[in-house]
Design a protein around this nucleic acid. Structure first.
Lengths: 233, 233
DNA sequence: TGATCGGTTATGTCTATACATATTGTGTGG
DNA sequence: CCACACAATATGTATAGACATAACCGATCA
């Protein structure tokens, strides 16, 4: 547990947050304005401003000019996940990570993929499949498409040594991402590689990545049976 | 698309972010210090500080006293979801929301639930089941347990009118939550209520809620076949 | 009645300045 | 050559003061 360093704006923030969480100030209630709070806490308005601004960012209050600051009526329920690289995730759990490159081929872009990536022109895709292992157990099956029109270097990369995820992070470290999560039934391929039965329910993550508005890659990650993705808010 | 209002710190932030995303400054690179940036942008150091601090919060850079500010080597991949109340979610998609309360009973806490909620003492739980509909179609099956030791009022609440989620938000608007997502196979009950086949893969969300360190409720939400949870980062 | 125009108010941002604090690097003495 | 003290440095926080801006509210006028 990291105990945050004391500082005036943190004290103000924690004090106000406590009043909200404990219900002293209920949803919809107007809280004192910044000048009053600054006087009450004996600090500058800028200090109160930072405290209350952060509470607004975190979804505790809503602020409006002239109208003042109110406790949110419908508190924001946000879930945030850190998405680690699969190798790091497995290593962090104390297991040995192994990556098996199954194969790659250059294909013309399937229709469904063009729709998903928002591509209008024709072009080639590099298609890769791989399995990620934790110790001796298959952990995740990866099926990836890389847009060769945007990333021609991918054709020359050697994905038997470095996984496509690592290679992509190295090549374009900052990108925009759309992720979606769902459930799917194991087909022949998944059942074989993840060592489960045909039709078993599997947790599925899909991710499309853009770099400067250009679609780069789409990946479909099927997790081992029973996998859970967890977060604490 | 919301075009953010122009302001100096936003300009600084966007300019720096662009340099990072475009690769002008690569991972690990040291960026100019606040005084230099302030001079370059012709603004006060506090303005630069806010810009860079927000970039650090968003995972673009790492800051250390005396050592300076560096572009993150392993950019944080975060996925954030807004978790709406199911009724609002369905209404937002333009469908008609309907809620069907199936039943409720008071039970002693099962062993698995005590483990999950971190309860050591014995006590009663209110167990509820319900189905949420979008138009005529079942959307989500809800199985919920409410800790009566922490929330005795729940025993008197009428959950045929107001869904347990709404009731809980009203009762304890601000709480801590642990969520997890996985895939499961439809059992008899789920197949019946969600109108799918036995064994169909379903997307599952589980949520445990605490209020001031006290466990309040655990809920298991099974979504209609094919459901996807999507987010854009 | 109703639309419009200012004035008032609370938040939003910015500045200049100051001191605190973590961390690095340097130099000194053993 | 190492340990330790100390200076240098970049970020972290706080201050008072100022002006900007959105939004509410009442007054004025068609």
């Amino acid at each position: 547990m990291v105990e945050p360093v004391k500082s005036a704006f943190r004290t103000v923030k924690e004090t106000l947050k406590h009043k909200i969480v404990a219900g002293d100030w209920g949803p919809g209630d107007l809280i004192p304005n910044e000048v009053e709070l600054a006087a009450a806490f004996g600090c500058a308005r800028a200090t109160v401003n930072r405290a209350v601004r952060e509470l607004a960012d975190e979804g505790y209050v809503e602020r409006k000019r002239k109208a003042g600051t109110r406790v949110r009526t419908a508190p924001l329920r946000r879930a945030a996940f850190e998405i680690p690289v699969v190798g790091d995730e497995i290593a962090a759990r104390g297991s040995v990570y192994r990556y098996e490159h199954l194969g790659q081929q250059t294909l013309s872009t399937p229709r469904w993929l063009k729709a998903r990536m928002g591509l209008d022109h024709h072009g080639k895709m590099l298609h890769l499949t791989a399995v990620h292992y934790a110790d001796a157990n298959p952990y995740q099956f990866e099926a990836r498409w890389i847009n060769l029109a945007a990333l021609p270097q991918a054709a020359e990369a050697d994905f038997s040594l470095m996984g496509p995820t690592e290679w992509l992070i190295k090549t374009i470290p900052f990108s925009n991402v759309e992720m979606s999560f769902s459930a799917t039934a194991a087909d022949e391929e998944l059942a074989h590689h993840l060592v489960c039965r045909l039709g078993d329910p599997l947790f599925l993550a899909e991710r499309t990545t853009w770099w400067q508005a250009e679609p780069i890659t789409y990946v479909r990650l099927a997790f081992q049976r029973g996998h859970k993705m967890t977060t604490r808010v």
